[in-house]
Design a binder for these strands. Structure first.
Lengths: 142, 142
DNA sequence: TATAAACCTTCCCACCACTGGAAGGTCAAG
DNA sequence: CTTGACCTTCCAGTGGTGGGAAGGTTTATA
């Protein structure tokens, strides 16, 4: 199977497959006499696994761990569950942060008349009194 | 005021201030005879405005609009409210997506015993039956 | 006045996970 | 044998930073 077909079957673009190979996420495949990458069914499964993991928001590092566990017949489900729950916690943190931002912004927008007058609590808040504050860090994906 | 002081007062690192200048988000300041950037109080306010907007998750494009409205005495609050509410909607979409992922992952983890046995619904799901699906795009920050 | 130090300048590199494109080689069908 | 789809490698750019080198400026102190 050439890279194009494996890309279609797995849903992972060919460019990405080469990138994953380069970064060591997937194995280097055999090559045809002309230098074309040759894949099998197992590669389709692996790539599909990766794609689904990314759809769930797992980081590359996590996926690397999951892949190792996935291919290990003697793995314990404990490890997997741990990774999954850590990811759940990370998602939870992101959700809380975004919810806070949304509420604050919605609150400000609620106090803004939204008419032709220039008064606007949103801009007032963004520009306004600094008070006590130092760079509050943010983010924190897994 | 040199860049260091304005950085401290606004909470925006000097490196970032130069970057904002380069990308046209803030004006090019005067220079001292020796070539040092010279800022005033107004610049501190502007940078603080930018920092707060970023803390709220606004994109550079949005901030550009907000800055223009902010400096416009004759603006209508309608425009500002529109931008803010669009951002609220974008945040909402992100929250919904992340919540869905969290719930799915938590559900899978709940069905995983988490002991020494290798059986694990999480991995089964990641690797398992493809069914009908094509690359579902994701993301969509403002 | 000399010199150190703190500050500033520009420029380049790296990150992450991709995406796009150019230049050129390979393969299958007509 | 040509066409065109497919593949190869390499190079560059994204966005919003952070790090650092090489060198110029300003200020304080010895």
């Amino acid at each position: 199977m050439n890279i194009g077909e494996v890309a279609e079957q797995s849903g992972v673009p060919a460019k990405m497959i080469r990138y994953y190979e380069e970064t060591g996420l997937v194995r280097k495949p055999e090559r045809s006499p002309g230098g074309y990458r040759q894949y099998g069914e197992a590669d389709v499964h692996t790539l599909r696994f990766i794609r689904r993991s990314r759809d769930l928001g797992f980081s590359f590092e996590r996926i690397r761990e999951l892949l190792k566990l996935w291919s290990d017949r003697r793995r314990s489900s404990h490890e997997v569950k741990k990774i999954a729950l850590a990811h759940v916690a990370a998602l939870e943190a992101d959700i809380i942060k975004l919810t806070g931002l949304r509420d604050m912004l919605r609150h400000l927008a609620g106090k803004c008349h939204g008419d032709d007058r220039p008064d606007c609590p949103i801009l007032d808040n963004l520009g306004g009194n600094p008070a006590s504050e130092r760079r509050s860090n943010a983010s924190g994906r897994n």
